[in-house]
Amino acid sequence: MKTESNVAYILRLALTLLVITAVVAVALAGVNSITEPKIDQLNAEKTQQAIEAVLPGGFDTEITDYTDDTGLVSKVYSGANGYAFEVTPGGFDNTITMMVGVDSDGKVLGISIVSHTETAGLGAVAAASTTAGEAFRSQFVGMSGSVSVSKDGGEVDALTGATITSRAVCTGVNAALACAANLG
């Protein structure tokens, strides 16, 4: 301390921190360049799988010209058998991203959850590939108009202990159905 003047000392502090930050930044850029294409590819695959799960025969084109009154529809894909809507209703913890397939008669073909942060063992069951999860999602198939959980007077059986998640999924399905009706 005594050998260094005050200014030099502060400069040394700043420089050390700058060097550390720079090294970290360079290292991260390196890792990111490896992982980014992989992550993008994974996301694309996931969307693709979700669309195929809810829309038999897959999709031909992505539609950008649609009317969405709910503000929840983020993407619309059109295929030979109907449409697939990517909707993002608010779940218990955070937004849920899900895909809803709707046929040309305005009936739900299927739903699939792309990503979520619901509670494991409760809300997360909605997205799980378990029997309970399948049962929850398959009950939407064939529904039309507007759907809601039985607690709210609808036909959907809510997941045990996860009414909020179940309601969110219904909200998502309703947004997709409304958007499909607008598409005609």
Binding site: V24, A25, L28
Partner: peptide
């Protein structure tokens, strides 16, 4: 965007 965590905490 991948620098978010580092920059935010700083």
């Amino acid at each position: 965007e991948y620098m978010q965590t580092v920059v935010f905490i700083l």
